[in-house]
Nucleic acid binder design. Structure first.
Lengths: 136, 136
DNA sequence: TTTAATGCAAATCGTTTGCATATCT
DNA sequence: AGATATGCAAACGATTTGCATTAAA
């Protein structure tokens, strides 16, 4: 099954009306590990979609997030990035090249009385520093 | 030792020149568990400081962060909050009342090959959901 | 008196909003 | 047709910048 088929199936399965733009964005996200911003998505797709607009990307990413097709990552203050991998894992931001890396996290001993009192819906583990390429 | 004395000592100890504004901001932060934004700090102090400006708050918080007197928390996309407690602990954002709560975190089994390759300088653990008062 | 901090206004940038147009069902 | 999605431009809000003024060393 190719990306187009996967994208189509994902939209249908989540009761999201299919449109050309939504398909293109979903195809772009599938298998993408670059944690793109709205502007990244917009820039990378505007050639393919003559009348493409940022507002559509904002609308679409909001819709995808509400339907748990992506998670939003605000590891860097000014901008929101998106990750099509919605499983819990860590994100590392390199302060030099600004790349975001995924990494596995195993958090043990976290269940405390806190999680009985609070209704936790989302969790994020962020690290910042320098990646192998950028550390001297 | 009162807040004024504590604030003064903290600035001196970190080789930060003392000014009226910096003192006021530091006094405001000491013992504050509200995770204020720049705008919060500005609003809460502007009565006491007639000519106060947001630019000064931005400058000062940047300086404080560089000197490890506060940590910045970008748990909510649009805004940066500050925490005078620089120890590692979790932050919980209530989606309803938007309050940010601190909680202790014990992360075990995290040392992986990842942390040997990457030079980690900061870490954050964020949760989102509904606090005891806001969950139905 | 020389350096550093402050304050104001303008600029920037990501994001949101309103509304008209186009596209699906 | 009727509902929904798209696109454009204007609005917004947090943050940054430039520069003149003021305070501190």
């Amino acid at each position: 099954m190719n990306k187009k088929e996967m994208a189509h199936e994902l939209l249908i399965k989540n009761n999201i009306n299919v449109s050309y733009q939504r398909m293109k964005i979903m195809e772009y996200l599938i298998g993408n590990h670059n944690h793109p911003t709205v502007v990244d998505i917009y820039n990378d797709l505007k050639e393919q979609i003559p009348t493409f607009s940022k507002a559509t990307v904002y609308n679409t990413m909001k819709l995808f997030e509400e339907n748990n097709l992506v998670q939003s990552i605000s590891i860097k203050e000014e901008e929101v990035r998106f990750d099509p991998d919605i499983s819990f894992h860590g994100h590392f931001l390199c302060k030099e090249c600004e790349k975001v890396y995924d990494f596995p996290v195993e958090i043990k001993g976290l269940k405390t009385s806190f999680e009985e009192e609070f209704n936790v819906e989302n969790s994020y583990y962020f690290l910042k520093g320098f990646c192998p390429e950028c550390k001297k």
